[in-house]
Write a protein that binds this DNA or RNA. Structure first.
Lengths: 148, 148
DNA sequence: ATAAATACTTGCAATATGCAAGTTAATTAT
DNA sequence: ATAATTAACTTGCATATTGCAAGTATTTAT
């Protein structure tokens, strides 16, 4: 059952490269990290800074600055929660949603293209495997405790 | 065939977190990037700077500096090729090999632990899926042309 | 009412990044 | 054979990213 690590490393590296290409939309160009922030805000409902920073496993201070720059370019909103004024609620601007959607479409297209090199049977197997893997990692003691 | 991207993003993020934990060995502490460099040097036979920088999709200048710091802490060797004196041949010191091996063991153990949450059948399926995925990505036009 | 915890923000200081410009060595014209 | 081009790096910026420590403001506990 030879080298698991090699297989994973290779896959993750490739997926990382894929991700990198996907960050330019219209005239807006954002970094990989920023695209992940948009992604996380998009898939949650009005998350707090903490929540997203935790999801990204980033220090809150670093994250705070990233949010500032995303606000500056008009993609992200940040408003104090009325329930608890310490908390800042994050959201996407209309432009932010457009960018997030465009990146999403782009990634989906890339994944489809990759999947097109496999048979239908293989595609199903791969998807199911990724799900299994995610569940196993979620249950694992060594990995990613506070995620999703 | 809902959200492929979400599945992949989640998996890659988790694997990234896994990777991060694995960079301290004995008294040596290295960064994630540095661990990847050790890994790439280890699995090739006397690669050149270019080769490893390409594999990591890093600018050569950035890579050059990383190698310098790895040499400074005594993990990596760099020698001019006798065949072509422009080329620098990279290698691991004895200590570098020790570190690379320790990280490798650590990662293997983590992966085993994760796999232990699946049945034997699932484990086989997952491994085969990762292989398929790697092949599909290698064939893909959108991803990772110059890899492996 | 005071203490302690929570959710951030800001000030460093260290590190990482890529582009452009340089150096040296090898190839390819001419 | 010499000159021009290409290749493999290295170094100098300028910028971006990171995390820790220390601060502020708000909420919760006692």
């Amino acid at each position: 059952m030879e080298n698991k690590r090699e297989l994973f490393q290779s896959m993750v590296k490739r997926f990382g490269l894929l991700n990198k290409n996907c960050c330019t939309v219209d005239d807006v160009e954002i970094s990989l990290v920023q695209s992940h922030i948009l992604y996380e805000i998009d898939r949650r409902e009005w998350p707090s800074m903490q929540q997203v920073a935790d999801a990204l496993a980033t220090d809150l201070s670093t994250f705070s600055r990233q949010v500032q720059s995303l606000m500056k370019i008009g993609l992200v909103t940040k408003d104090p929660s009325s329930a608890d004024k310490r908390i800042s609620v994050l959201g996407l601007t209309e432009e932010g949603q457009k960018v997030a959607l465009a990146i999403q479409k782009d990634m989906e297209a890339h994944l489809e293209e990759i999947f097109s090199h496999m048979t239908e049977f293989e595609q199903d197997m791969v998807l199911q495997s990724i799900k299994l893997l995610n569940e196993a990692m979620a249950r694992s003691s060594v990995c990613c405790k506070p995620m999703y």
